[in-house]
Amino acid sequence: MWHGWPIERVLILFAGIAFALLAVQVTLFHSRQNFRHWAMWLPVIELPLFAVTAIVLSFYNAGWLRWVFALWMLMGVAGGVYGAYLHTVGVGQRVGGYGQSQNFLVGPPVILPLFMTALSALGLIALFWG
């Protein structure tokens, strides 16, 4: 079944599975914080859409679906950068701010939204590679 799949197709499938796993983690983290900021809902809604689109695209290569996936991935890149900004601000709002290294350990994870950015960029690379 996997024989003959180009690397681009495998990477899109990988990205879809990774988006699904990331969606679970982000939902757990944001629900633990009771969705205190409206932007916390964005990745909770986006990531499952990214996952389903990528997985379906890896099996059904339709032109319109490729455009939808490209738009989702552009949103993912931008949303991840915005999330990293919000998480960085959140670390600074904790007692002691940025001078307290412990805040980077127990505060909002600054790297997690950047993982969404990197995974979205991987999706774009895989989509436009061939």
Results as ranks from 00 to 15, higher is better:
F69W: 08
T88I: 01
H37R: 10
Q93N: 11
A39V: 10
S31V: 09
A126W: 01
V106A: 09
W67M: 10
P6S: 11
A54T: 06
E8A: 08
A20M: 10
G97W: 04
F29M: 15
L119P: 02
L42R: 09
A70K: 11
F35V: 04
M116F: 05
L11S: 13
V26W: 00
F69E: 02
T27Y: 03
F115E: 09
V52I: 14
G99I: 02
V110K: 05
F29S: 14
A118E: 08
V81P: 00
V77C: 08
G130P: 15
N103M: 08
A70S: 14
F14C: 06
H37F: 04
I45T: 11
A78E: 11
G99F: 03
W5Q: 13
A15P: 01
H37I: 04
T117I: 07
H30K: 09
H3D: 14
T117F: 05
R32P: 00
V91G: 00
S120M: 04
G83T: 00
G107T: 11
A20G: 14
V106N: 07
A54G: 07
L119W: 02
A126S: 11
V89I: 12
F59R: 06
L127D: 03
F14N: 02
G4A: 11
M75N: 11
P48C: 06
L122W: 04
L49W: 09
M1C: 15
L105R: 10
P48Y: 05
F104Q: 07
G79F: 00
G99C: 04
V56W: 06
V91M: 05
M116P: 01
F128H: 13
I17K: 00
F128I: 09
F19K: 06
E8H: 10
L114F: 06
L74D: 10
L22E: 03
A62L: 13
I12N: 01
L11D: 10
L11C: 14
W72G: 06
V24P: 07
W72D: 08
S31P: 01
V68S: 12
S58L: 04
Q93P: 04
F19M: 13
A39I: 13
L74C: 14
H3F: 13
V10C: 10
W2A: 14
G63S: 08
I7Q: 12
L57M: 08
A84V: 03
L42C: 12
M116H: 04
L21E: 09
H30A: 03
Y98S: 09
M40F: 06
V91F: 02
Q93H: 09
R94Y: 06
F29E: 15
L114A: 06
A121N: 03
L42I: 15
L11G: 03
L47T: 06
P113L: 04
L112N: 07
G123F: 01
M75T: 12
V26N: 01
G79D: 01
G92E: 04
L114V: 07
A20K: 02
G130R: 15
H30M: 02
F128C: 11
G96P: 01
G90R: 07
G76W: 02
F115S: 10
